[in-house]
């Protein structure tokens, strides 16, 4: 059973929230209450790529307890703190963000599902459509 992660928008300003829906189908027929899946942890993670050593930080997270049959259908809302860096595509480094849903499975490797997202400066909605730097306006 894979976890489903639906985002309302892949772009979010600092200080706003990534919202969406988190789903997981019930194990077996949904009647049995012996699912190995216990909970789902949803994490907004920032990490760097490039020439420097990687910096990785979990910016926000949210926990969801699963039903006994392992199913879930819930809305989520992850705050992007104003103190975080914005997504950035530089010359020596890139600052990237992803939202990862990890299903905690009993005696098994955790299931994961992740989406790349974009964090933009305050006031950048409608202007920023890719990581900073901003594309130059056509002359």
């Amino acid at each position: 059973m894979t976890v489903g992660l639906e985002l309302d928008d892949l772009v979010c300003q600092l200080g706003d929230r990534f919202t969406g829906r988190l789903t997981r189908h019930a194990d077996a027929d949904g009647v049995l209450g012996d699912s190995p899946a216990r909970s789902i942890q949803l994490v907004l993670r920032m990490y760097t790529e490039g020439r420097g050593d990687t910096d990785r930080r979990d910016v926000t997270n949210q926990n969801f307890d699963l039903e006994a049959h392992g199913g879930l259908n819930a809305a989520f809302s992850l705050l992007v703190p104003e103190t975080s860096p914005v997504s950035y595509d530089g010359t020596l480094m890139r600052v990237m963000y992803e939202i990862e849903a990890r299903v905690d499975l009993k005696f098994a490797r955790d299931e994961k599902s992740a989406h790349q997202v974009l964090v933009i400066p305050v006031g950048g909605l409608g202007v920023y459509d890719r990581p900073h730097p901003l594309p130059l306006y056509p002359s």
Partner: peptide, 17 residues
């Protein structure tokens, strides 16, 4: 202060602007 080049200031352990 350019809107097109560079990034806002930030300081991480190994990466900084």
């Amino acid at each position: 202060i350019s809107a097109n080049r560079g990034s806002p200031s930030f300081k991480l352990r190994n990466n900084e602007v």
